[in-house]
Write a protein that binds this DNA or RNA. Structure first.
Lengths: 229, 229, 229, 229
DNA sequence: TATGAATGAGCTTTCATTCAT
DNA sequence: TATGAATGAAAGCTCATTCAT
């Protein structure tokens, strides 16, 4: 299965879900999403009240239910939108390169860029996503699956091409990568913006690429890494 | 500061917390903890009712409050006990080896063994621990900090000894390691027990050790890894 | 300190409490107060459930918490409003007379009128007020103190003017007066309305005024008393 | 109906209630009563836990139920015993005098002595007795009724003998007297023991006797009062 | 569309009472 | 008798969701 089959837009059709909700006012819709991101991040999904979000968004609490089915739906949508954006960015980036190492590196950069540069988002994913994935019937992690599939493809292709070690279980590696990216986004978002960002991205890349690559030396990885971000 | 200074038992004293609670019946206390582990893991902390736990433990709901201050305290205690156990096991294991690579390897094995062999525990840590750490005033993650400190020491010592790359930020690496261990425990606990366990531990070790070690080749790491677990 | 300084409205300012709560619907607010008066009076504060009040007021139980902080607050507010009303009525009445005996008599009449004509209120004050005063942190008996101060002033002024015996401890006398008024309100409210009311008021007045007055004979007091109410 | 018919012991028989409960250990029984008096007085009946009483009495909470039917029964018994004691003391005192004024005076003194010299008891009666009387099925106020009857008899006899004003409603006056005694006991118990006690008793007596007596002057009452206590 | 007052289901926690020892 | 661990009913309060305006 090529990337096309998992393409973000096709995925929509396959999963028979209308991502594009009936939004009366795009502006208000975004205000709710942004308010929820901040509120959920600061108080936690369960501790946050719907009225906290409406307060933050400066609308009435009832209005939220014109845009979202319920409280769960807000978080689910927030995550879905995030991973849709990541997926779209990565897909378009992957078209520009064929090397697996480069693809992986791009994947890291984009994820770190999208999630790690948004303090509230990084916290939210760190704290709530595992819960949401497991217990929220609303959240079917449609777009997260797309992103995960892209990553799996990169790894599998790399193994097939002899660029990555053949003894790797791609699912395990993909899990590790998400575990690590999550931690790095937390670090990055906490340290504010700046030099540090590149350092973290490089760190992940150098460690992972060195570890995954077939007998590559440190120096090479370092050089490669240095050119990223 | 040597390991001794962070020793689990000393930590107790330093933190002025009596971990040993007044337990009327050790058996009932354990029953509650185990029931909570299962219930929280399956339904999620917030979705689980206290009465779910008492039902599972086959006691009256009020009895829980003879052993725990409140619902939060159950989860906090559960995590604290878990990391205390991990900390104790790791500390005693570290006494037997001085090599940083070996220490790190032992750290991985023990963590994977304790958490990865308990499906409910692995899920619980994966799903609830970040929340608990952030939002539960009850949970001061006393023992998690001990375990984290041990890991930081291993890394720092490795760097000092020239065994690990000197460009590493030990906190970032430690964060990555926990992120990865969490994912691996989930995988391991899902796949049931068996051969797979060793595979996962080896996978982490080979990837991390190769990546972290100063210009080591793959073969050496593999041989070293093979001797573990 | 003249009466003005203890004026009800000034008291508000001094105590920095906004008595006027944010009431969404004055009608509903009153319905809750009235329902609570009846329910608390009949079942007792502790035996009464919040849902008893909401049932009586024909609203949802949750609605009560839009108007009151908690169950305690309902009773505290009820008492506060009652004594505010008494205080306001007494203050305006006192402006019309300068004679201490007349003032005291007016005080009796108004108290008996406000409390003694409301069976539920009389019972409630009789049964719950001492408790509330002692154990309810919510209830700071703001307006009761105002009323008490007014009474103390009347007594002190009477003593100063040589109208009342000089050997009186005004606080003790004030306490006695409230003790007696409470009993009389109970009697009055039980006997239904009618002639009896005047009889009770006169009884208290004749007994107290005779007793308090400086060597007045019975006849004079009786004549004075007869002209009241 | 003479006093004999209302005698404390006969009352017992008439009401078919065995006041003397099956007490296994008189000492422990008393300890519970005393502990309850203190605890109820300080925390309030409803706020006090049965275990507070057992803690105070230095026994196990379960033991209380060997001596009392339930929490209510403790308070009911406490009140019953108190008024039994008052009733017995008053009855024996009344045998020594035939003058209504003297009887009333003795009544005041004894009540003030028994209740006013026990801080906890005074508070308890002040705060909880009206509640108990109204809402506690356990508390049938047997002995309080006896004491009330004695008071009513004194008043009625005084009126009949032409010593007290004939326009008095004896029930209303009795109510007033209890209302006043309650307040005075509170004052007395707060001010500690000493001279003050006599002052309060005298105050009540002088006010009431003057007010109640048929055209007596102040001086006479004062002299009479001075000889009391 | 937007509001926000009203709803009421549902939960944690307390504590009087019981009962096995 | 005495204990105190265990029980479980009961209720105050919250807050997601609805709906009349």
């Amino acid at each position: 299965m090529g990337l096309a089959a998992r393409s973000i837009e096709i995925a929509l059709v396959n999963n028979k879900r209308q991502f594009i909700k009936p939004r009366r006012s795009e502006r208000k819709y975004r205000a709710i999403i942004e308010a929820a991101k901040k509120v959920f991040s600061q108080k936690g999904f369960y501790n946050a009240r719907v009225s906290d979000i409406s307060d933050q968004a400066q609308i009435a609490s009832g209005t939220i239910y014109l845009y979202f089915k319920n409280k769960d739906d807000i978080l689910a949508t927030l995550f879905d939108e995030t991973f849709r954006r990541i997926g779209v960015e990565i897909e378009s980036s992957l078209n520009k390169c064929s090397d697996s190492r480069e693809k992986l590196s791009n994947f890291f950069s984009i994820y770190l860029n999208v999630v790690g540069s948004d303090k509230y988002l990084a916290e939210l994913i760190h704290v709530e996503m595992n819960q949401a994935t497991k217990f929220m019937p609303e959240y079917r992690e449609l777009y997260f699956q797309c992103v995960m599939d892209i990553l799996l493809d990169i790894i599998d292709q790399g193994i097939a091409d002899g660029v990555f070690r053949e003894d790797l279980d791609s699912k395990a590696v993909a899990g590790m990568i998400f575990g690590v990216l999550d931690q790095m986004c937390m670090l990055k978002s906490k340290n504010g913006r700046g030099q540090n960002t590149k350092g973290l991205a490089s760190l992940i890349e150098s460690i992972f690429l060195q570890g995954i690559e077939e007998s590559k030396g440190y120096a090479g990885a370092k050089q490669f890494t240095a050119s990223l971000l």
